[in-house]
Nucleic acid binder design. Structure first.
Lengths: 164, 164
DNA sequence: TTAATAGTTGACTATTTTGCTGGGTTAAGT
DNA sequence: ACTTAACCCAGCAAAATAGTCAACTATTAA
């Protein structure tokens, strides 16, 4: 699992879509203007997102993109995985072709960590992020309320799984 | 918080160090051989790690690197932060220089997510990863009683080195 | 003292990824 | 027909990544 600006662009665009595509499809031109991402770069990203069945493209006037599913069914890990190259799991490609035992061991450790991050991001949906933002803006408007609904208990939960 | 192969190299190298530097300092040449990372690339990474006070360099014959602190005091987030460029938090650099409200909102959402990942990784130490691996390898060894004997002597060798 | 070891530094190169431009083609609505 | 917008390329400049080379300095064993 990698975390780069590319994935960030994708998540941002998907959030924008979740925000605006309730009524009608959203054009990439709109997203490009709102999020200041170049149209052609968005096209690249959405080409992958569409092939991964995260969004649906509707052609013609009045067309655009909509989410392929409800926002609570779309998680962050899948979005990032969709736009990232399939990571080649370098050098120790799946099978044990490592000559050295140590190399494989530390490789395993890293992969385990990577899996945990993926699981963590799999547990966060677009709907949760929108809700969190909603809560936050409401809280800012009224008075300070306790936010952070999503993060904390999940954090401890995952740490607990480390200690098994 | 970014997650790239660079950070992975750094974590892998630090894990290798945590494994082997109990008795004496570990040379980058050794790490390069074990982890199949180029020596000079390691030099770059360890230059940053040293400046970030994650490791100590010891010169002269018998020299090498050791952890600057015990393995339970070194967390993954700090390792990655040490080798990564300070992320520029693009376009909305700290202050609210976003012209559009939406851009800032989704930006906030992403930054919040990024913070959560950082907190998560801050909660995972080298010691935890080593411990997890230790348990796992023992279990694997017990399972492989009737099977091929390839890994066994390496395991005992490793366990022996842990008890010294 | 001397030679070997090993870290330190900086500049340099190759490759990959990133973000973007611009050209088109195809499907759908007016 | 004409427009709109998704779709699909080929390519390209800048940046990041990964690795190389060479000169240097500090340490210490012999």
């Amino acid at each position: 699992m990698r975390l780069t600006t590319k994935g960030r662009y994708a998540v941002t665009a998907m959030l924008d879509l979740a925000f605006h595509s309730d009524i009608k499809p959203v054009t990439l031109t709109d997203i490009a203007a709102r999020q200041t991402i170049s149209l052609s770069y968005l096209e690249q990203l959405f080409s992958r997102l569409r092939r991964a069945n995260m969004v649906k493209g509707i052609r013609g006037p009045g067309g655009g993109y909509t989410l392929a599913d409800t926002a609570d069914k779309i998680n962050i890990a899948d979005i990032i995985a969709a736009v990232d190259e399939p990571i080649d799991a370098t050098k120790c490609g799946g099978e044990a072709n490592c000559q050295k035992e140590q190399a494989c061991l530390t490789h395993d450790l890293w992969m385990g960590l990577s899996d945990q991050i993926r699981d963590y991001l799999k547990g966060i949906t677009l709907a949760q992020l929108l809700e969190k933002h909603h809560v936050k803006s409401v809280a800012k408007r009224q008075d300070q309320e306790a936010e952070q609904v999503i993060g904390i208990h999940r954090h401890t939960e995952l740490l607990a799984s480390l200690n098994e």
